[in-house]
Amino acid sequence: MNAGIATGSTVGFGGGQIRRWQGGVTMVETASAASVDVDAEDDDTLIVRFADGDQSAARLLSERHLGRVLALATRMLRDTAEAEDVAQEAMMRAWRNAAKWEPGRAKFSTWLHKVALNLCYDRLRKRKSSSLDEVAEPVDDRASAQDGMEADERLSTLKSAIAALPERQRAAIQLRHFEERGNDETAEILGVSVEAVESLLSRGRRALRDKLAGQRAMLLEE
């Protein structure tokens, strides 16, 4: 399971100091209020704070969500550089839309993942259209080259099997298995019904089971 960036975000106000990020500069200022756990602030509060000009909220939101968004994009695109671009663009859209954010109307995390997933779909579509113009299949070539450099052959086998799944099955497995999101949220992010989520998961995992059946001993080092 993936986690966000591990940083201590609990800050002490009681006679201590708070590290506040402003415009790329870390400033240290003294505060005298009671101790506050900034992790306790929900995403709605943070996005509103950012819209009001508090950039420390941007750091907290990034620490909370960037890792998951990056993991989603990496498993969808299987390309680190592209996945980073998608994660950055998704966060950028969050910043740009912060002023329009209506707390309570939607879950920020769901919205952000939906944006990231759509950006992944766009890139996958572009790959497909460009591969039609070329003789070779660029995605597979690049994936093979990348995998060739990976020391872990098991991981390469697994990645290839997941990459071969249809996009929505891949996304459903990412959201349900890796991120442990509920059916309702997964359905909302994918833009399908809850029943469709179950069907996507079932077909995707069944395909993976069949594809990896021969490598099971090698993968699990049995």
Binding site: G4, Q55, A87, Q88, L155, L158, R216, L220
Partner: peptide, 28 residues
């Protein structure tokens, strides 16, 4: 499940985090 868990998600690099926070500063 165990086979899937072999693929751990990447951790965001400091460079990526810096770019994201720079974007936030620009928008602000």
């Amino acid at each position: 499940d165990a086979m899937l868990d072999l693929w751990e998600g990447p951790q965001p690099s400091n460079a990526l985090l810096s770019r994201v926070l720079a974007d936030a500063a620009t928008v602000a």
